[in-house]
Design a binder for these strands. Structure first.
Lengths: 186, 186
DNA sequence: AGCGCAATCTTGTCACTGACAAGTTTTACG
DNA sequence: CGTAAAACTTGTCAGTGACAAGATTGCGCT
């Protein structure tokens, strides 16, 4: 593990993604620097290009990974729509770097096959929670319900991350999200 | 008007902001280049710095202008909460460049006095619409109601801009937003 | 075992960018 | 009319992404 002199890093791709997560959390996805990632991983400035092609390639990999994690998170809370919404907000806050990349398609290759597949899985998980709750309603209603649920959760998460919410909301995202998301069902 | 040789541009600050709006719509706020703006305005590469200090200064001015426009838009639709929500989404879509800068505080100076004032005006306009509708409810309810209304409108707008919504939603943002926002009140 | 080849990584370079410094031209004001 | 400030230019520097070419390493094949 300590042979930092090895010519081959061994697990550079993974190391770069991990470094990217850190860097995105520190400076945001746009200000990400491939050369900085290379420095963090202890390799030359051109090494990242070999694994990801370019910056967009790296962010595409990050986004795809993020959609998979989100799909997994949503599936776990699938039986309770309110808790699924809370989980969505929680994902955005605790895995901020993923979330911020995922919804900035101008930074990555939105036509990447793996990415599209992962995004599809997340979308399915999202819709299935709403379908389970609304029971035997018409499909058109499920469409609109899931869109509304997604919108309110996504909006709250985005506003939270942007620091746009007033101070009185507090500093507990799960709690605050629950209070707001409840307004949808009543 | 055709004396393009004049040493003094005459209205460079305004011209740069207009060029910035165009550029942001084309490449996004992060990929904005001050040197490109200078070229669009026909001035030297260092001219923008004189008016805005740096890139963050320019985006701060854009964001403040955006919050003022949003406040104005919301005030005009103040009597109908649903229409105010639709107006919010419409603002995001038709004045995309403003909207995208406004909610990316890491790109500008969030402690700027003018910006804070403009953001405050927008927030007041937003809350007053909800307060008018909910009538004599408790203030705490108004807080949560306005947060919920803001979240769902903001979420839908953000997802629309990110191209994350499924195709079946259609291509008319106002119509689609109305259908989704209605779910909040029922 | 060892040979060759592909994968991995490095060094070098180029155009572009933001920021800063110093100089030049114009306007405004007393 | 003259001088100081405002508006803009030229020049420069370090950092960045992308690309090209070369060095090193590991792996499959015989």
């Amino acid at each position: 593990m300590t042979d930092t002199r090895a010519y081959h890093h061994g697990d550079l791709r993974r190391a770069l993604l991990a470094a990217a997560l850190e860097a995105v959390e520190e400076v945001g996805p746009a200000a990400l620097s491939l050369r900085d990632l290379a420095r963090r991983a202890g390799v030359s400035h051109a090494a990242p290009a070999h694994h990801f092609g370019d910056k967009a390639g790296l962010l595409t990999a990050l986004a795809a990974q993020g959609f998979d994690l989100l799909a997994q998170t949503l599936t776990e809370a699938d039986d309770d729509l309110l808790e699924a919404g809370v989980a969505y907000v929680d994902f955005a806050v605790t895995r901020r770097a993923y979330f911020e990349v995922m919804f900035r398609p101008e930074l990555y290759r939105a036509d990447d096959a793996e990415l599209i597949a992962a995004r599809g899985r997340a979308g399915t998980a999202l819709r299935s929670g709403v379908a389970a709750l609304s029971g035997g309603g018409a499909p058109a209603d499920t469409d609109r319900d899931s869109l509304a649920a997604w919108s309110i959760a996504h909006g709250f998460a985005t506003l939270w991350l942007a620091g746009a919410l007033p101070d009185r909301v507090g500093d507990n995202p799960r709690e605050a999200a629950r209070a707001v998301l409840r307004r949808l069902s009543t």
